[in-house]
C-alpha cells in the first residue's frame, strides 16, 4: 500500500480550499506523506492575502452561518495545521509567472516547482486527488 497522497489544487474558491485542506490534514494525521500542487486559481489557497478572503460559490453565501455554527476551522488555520503536520506545498512556477507572483506572495515554507516535480512525486502515490 502506498503511503503517499498527492493532491492537485486547481481551483480557488472557499469550498475548494476546504476540500483540499481537510483531506490533506486528515491524510497527514493518518501518517501519510502528503504533497499538494497548487496551480492556476488554486494558488489563492496559499496566497498570503487571498487565503483570508476566499469566495463562496455564487448563490451559496447563506452557508456562511452554517460554517460558523459547525465551528469549522478557518482556511489560514487549516493551512498552518497542514504545514505543522508535514504537508508539503508546491506552487506551480508556470502559473506564478503568468500571474506575476513570486514566492514571497505565499505563506512561508512552500516550494516552487513545475509539473514534472509533482508527477515524479505522484507516480507511486495512492490516491492522487484533484480539486
Amino acid at each position: 500500500m502506498s503511503n503517499k497522497v498527492a493532491i492537485i489544487a486547481a481551483n480557488g474558491g472557499l469550498f475548494d480550499a476546504y476540500k483540499v485542506f481537510n483531506i490533506a490534514t486528515a491524510a497527514a494525521a493518518s501518517e501519510k506523506e502528503v504533497q499538494i500542487f497548487f496551480t492556476f486559481e488554486g494558488l489563492n489557497l496559499i496566497h498570503k492575502q487571498a487565503m483570508h478572503a476566499l469566495e463562496m460559490p455564487a448563490g451559496k453565501e447563506h452557508l456562511t452561518e452554517g460554517f460558523e455554527k459547525a465551528n469549522v476551522p478557518t482556511i489560514p488555520q487549516l493551512v498552518e495545521m497542514a504545514q505543522e503536520l508535514g504537508v508539503k506545498f508546491i506552487a506551480c512556477q508556470m502559473t506564478m509567472d503568468v500571474m506575476g507572483l513570486t514566492k514571497e506572495d505565499f505563506v512561508d515554507g512552500i516550494e516552487v516547482g513545475g509539473a514534472v516535480t509533482f508527477l515524479e512525486y505522484a507516480k507511486d502515490a495512492s490516491p492522487t486527488l484533484t480539486f
Binding site: 481537510n22 486528515a26 494525521a29 493518518s30 459547525a70 465551528n71 495545521m81
Partner: peptide, 11 residues
C-alpha cells in the same frame, strides 16, 4: 470541533 480537527488533535 468539526472534521478533521478531532483526528488531528487525537494524533
Amino acid at each position: 470541533l468539526a472534521c478533521p480537527m478531532p483526528i488531528v488533535k487525537t494524533k
